[in-house]
């Protein structure tokens, strides 16, 4: 397959290698025979930012749970870095709607927690230097030794970004990470996320139901529809990088948002 591709495409070296591959994925909940996902195919390439958008109940949370190894698929193929995903893995980074920092541990202790859980206390101590670097990266360098109760909502989510990055994951799975923040903080955090993804050359997959957020962050957007949950269209976002908040006011941005809203709206009418 890859051999054939490279023969057909002479400039295949310019296309980044694929990191996460999903083919013919389906998920049926046995209890109520609900078809949550059917025939989902997607490929995340290295350094790419892909979002999935859709109304609630379209299966996007189910997709993310399967991708993170928290839930098995009913059928289909799910591979990260060529290895099948059969459970949670250290090379999968996750971020949730809530920062979920443990209040009895300092910020830096929270950040090295994934290392401590998987490799023990001495490995966690060794990872502290890197944790501090990550804190500096997200602008929390001075907050390493405070408790999460003293962090604002935005700061707590930045700390949880560090916790996600500490294991050097091959892919970042983001489950509406800023939806609990106010809109101004959210805009700011989205720009921060873009910068962090760029500096760490991360491959990221975002689940959201904010159109503007998906468009401003993504290289591609997968539009999903429910009953049964499936990807109905892939929208490539041609806006240049780095993206800025001013782009939201451009006609091109407006056209893209209108197009996706149209796709989602048809569903609502059905």
């Amino acid at each position: 397959m890859t051999m054939a591709e490279s023969q057909i495409l002479p400039d295949s070296a310019a296309i980044p290698r694929s990191v996460y591959e999903i083919s013919r994925l389906s998920k049926t909940y046995a209890r109520n025979r609900l078809v949550a996902l059917t025939d989902v195919n997607l490929t995340l390439r290295e350094g790419e930012f892909v979002s999935v958008i859709g109304s609630s109940g379209c299966g996007k949370s189910t997709l993310l749970k399967i991708m993170s190894g928290l839930m098995p698929p009913t059928s289909g193929r799910v591979t990260l870095e060529g290895k099948p995903v059969t459970g949670t893995r250290a090379d999968i980074g996750m971020m949730f709607q809530q920062a979920t920092l443990l209040p009895w541990m300092t910020t830096i202790e929270n950040i090295v927690l994934p290392i401590e859980i998987r490799q023990g206390k001495s490995a966690a101590r060794a990872a502290r230097a890197r944790a501090q670097e990550l804190l500096d990266l997200v602008g929390l360098g001075d907050f390493a030794h405070v408790y999460p109760g003293e962090l604002s909502g935005g700061m707590a989510q930045r700390a949880s970004i560090c916790r996600m990055l500490i294991t050097r994951p091959a892919v970042l799975l983001l489950d509406e990470p800023f939806s609990a923040l106010d809109e101004l903080t959210r805009d700011f955090m989205n720009m921060e996320l873009q910068r962090i993804c760029h500096e760490t050359r991360a491959t990221a997959f975002l689940v959201t139901h904010s159109l503007a957020e998906a468009v401003i962050l993504s290289d591609r957007i997968l539009v999903m529809k429910p009953r049964p949950g499936r990807i109905v269209e892939e929208v490539v976002i041609p806006l240049p990088r780095p993206r800025t908040l001013e782009m939201i006011n451009t006609p091109e941005f407006g056209r893209i948002v209108a197009h996706i809203r149209d796709l989602l709206g048809k569903e609502a009418e059905q």
């Binding site: 993170s68 928290l70 459970g87 949670t88 250290a90 996750m94 949730f96 859980i117 998987r118």
Partner: peptide
């Protein structure tokens, strides 16, 4: 979910 995803 966090603890599960960390493989705890």
């Amino acid at each position: 979910m966090l603890f599960k995803s960390m493989g705890a």
